[in-house]
């Protein structure tokens, strides 16, 4: 019984970690290559979830919704980069914080104006609503799909960044932007592409997590901070760091929430355990980040030499 619970939670942790990776991958590249703090990255995730939920409701098909979310956010990402963000690269971090904080306010208010203050319903596809049998453990089919998609996208990104020409440019840009430019890489175009890719990954995460979490205003901010924690732990600009960081944070957070209250009950009174457990679980990932930064002040896999 206990091992079954632990395996189930491990899978949940993997699933959460992979979704975090979708967000963190775009964020860490934007951060690493253009040295740009983008607080509105979470808004892209929210936008994807809203677009997808609305399109799913209108068409009745999850796949159509997914397609609408991906294409819609790719276009919005492109537009955002060309019209606004491009003008912020040369500015200091504080200006970027202010501008992208403003974008959060605008995005949240727009979502509220278009779709109202109530959360949108987004249901998983009918075929995936039941559980599947996984080596003797019954696990929700939809969550399993998320894991599979997450793994596939992670593999794709790994190949894209590690083994293609465009990926070589990306890595060159992350480790030394000026040098990459001097060698003739068009960093401007590269970054427009990266930003659009980041927006698509956000939309994918938003759409996939939509049926599990509520599609509502403010969903971006909660997960944004987690994504930042991930890329800081992993080392800014490093895709590998983002993957390791995502899985670490996903596992620690999920397992902490599921197991800590139970563990605490064995050493303290149930009353205290019920109160301290969830709080301690929430603190765990920040503790992890502070500890990583204490011993490795530039993260686990620093992209810059």
């Amino acid at each position: 019984m206990m091992t079954q619970l632990i395996i189930e939670q491990l899978l949940n942790g993997l699933q959460f970690g992979l979704m975090l990776f979708l967000l963190a991958a775009g964020l860490t590249l934007v951060f690493g290559i253009m040295d740009m703090i983008n607080l509105s990255h979470g808004s892209l995730y929210m936008g994807g979830a809203y677009l997808g939920a609305a399109a799913t409701q209108a068409s009745g098909s999850f796949l159509v919704g997914l397609l609408a979310a991906l294409v819609g956010m790719a276009l919005i990402g492109l537009l955002l980069e060309v019209v606004l963000l491009r003008r912020l690269y040369q500015r200091d971090h504080l200006s970027q914080v202010l501008a992208t904080f403003a974008l959060i306010l605008i995005a949240n208010e727009l979502a509220r104006m278009i779709w109202g203050p109530q959360p949108l319903m987004l249901n998983a596809p009918e075929v995936l609503s039941g559980p599947v049998d996984l080596f003797g453990i019954s696990y929700p089919a939809y969550r399993l799909l998320i894991i599979v998609v997450g793994l596939a996208v992670a593999g794709l990104l790994y190949w894209l960044v590690g083994h293609t020409r465009a990926g070589m440019w990306v890595r060159a840009g992350a480790s030394n932007r000026e040098m990459a430019q001097a060698l003739g890489i068009d960093v401007r175009k590269l970054f427009t592409g990266i930003f659009a890719l980041g927006a698509v990954l956000c939309a994918l995460a938003g759409m996939l997590l939509g049926p599990l979490l509520a599609v509502q205003v403010g969903m971006g901010e909660d997960i944004l901070i987690l994504a930042f924690v991930v890329i800081v732990i992993g080392g800014i600009g490093s895709i590998r760091g983002a993957l390791v960081g995502s899985l670490l944070v996903g596992m620690v957070d999920t397992l902490g929430r599921a197991l800590l209250p139970t563990l605490l009950r064995t050493i303290t009174s149930p009353d205290i355990a019920a109160h301290v457990g969830p709080a301690l679980a929430s603190v765990l990932i920040y503790l992890l980040m502070a500890a990583v930064l204490f011993w490795r002040p530039t993260g686990l896999f620093p992209a810059r030499a």
Partner: peptide, 17 residues
């Protein structure tokens, strides 16, 4: 002990804790 962006994030981490 950290600087720049990492300082931003570690102060955030402590505040969240």
């Amino acid at each position: 002990r950290t600087r720049g962006v990492y300082f931003i994030m570690i102060t955030l981490a402590f505040a969240q804790m």
